[in-house]
Amino acid sequence: MMETRQSYSIVFILLTILLMVCFIANISLGSVRIPLADVFSVLFGGEASKESFNYIVFDYRLPKAITALLVGGGLAISGLLMQTLFRNPLAGPFVLGLSSGASLGVAILILGAGALGGLVGGLLTSQWSLVIASALGSFLVLLAVLAVTLRIKDTMAILIIGLMFGSVTGAVVAVLSYFSSAEQLQQFVFWSFGSLGNQSWSGILILSICTLVGVVISFFSSKSLNALLLGENYAKSMGVRIKRTTLVIIVATSILAGGITAFAGPIAFVGLAVPHLTRQWITTSNHRILLPAVLLFGSIIMLVCDIVAQLPLSEYTLPINAITSLIGAPVVIWLLVRKRKLLF
């Protein structure tokens, strides 16, 4: 017993160190390489060797790194919550159509604003309304998926429902784009590429609140989540109130997936892949250990993906969604082939 507990704390120390390294590397690397000494001096309130470094770190790279941290950790947690709730190893915010639901909410907000007229439209597209539309979209999709799973016990069914929501979103967006202006369409398309950059500090504050609320609710639910690992009936027999627990988990997931998608766009595979990668390393399904590990690991993966997307020392920046898919999809295939069966 002592041995396993000790090895878990080593894992957490390693993950925390790795997270800090990735965080600093993320700030240091980019189209302009900022020496580590300068990164540290700016972060700790000093002056960099060049005036421009101050500006780059504070107004651009630090907000982006913090966004990556929050987005990665939050999405990974929401993936873990869904895998346990639906007792399906393939569940995740993207696969279940949560991201599509969020996209639909945002599409209706951005593109539909045109139909409502400029003034109302301008009022609507503030950051909070984007978050609310997105969270509401993913909440509704999650409720729909849940309603289906109550009727059909087949785990395949919920994945198909997720796919269907993806197509419905695509169709509605296509219809809306027909009636909206070129700028609105462009705004939506750029949002849908996913982006960690260009976040204002007030935006990051909202994102932090969403992530914090979602993560805290998840941690408070870890006991019930563990009971759910045995299945609904066993959980019930141990005194877990299924309806209440399910609702709490769904709310937490919607806040996480919806809030994050509102800011960063629909980001694929992090929610699905990170919990599985974490389980490769930490061979337990105990949420009291898995939740913090998945949180840290998700942040690390996102920071790394962002470093890759910046193509260090080049002028180009790739859409973050393309990078997470390029890295995430082969990882999931590799896990499936190697283990033949994904466990959760």
Binding site: R87, N226, T284, S285
Partner: peptide, 20 residues
């Protein structure tokens, strides 16, 4: 019914009985 997750160790599985 089989437990939903097969990824728990024997000890973890038995320990879950202490939940109440």
């Amino acid at each position: 019914e089989a437990p939903a997750s097969r990824n728990l160790t024997t000890t973890e599985f038995v320990s879950l009985g202490r939940q109440p």
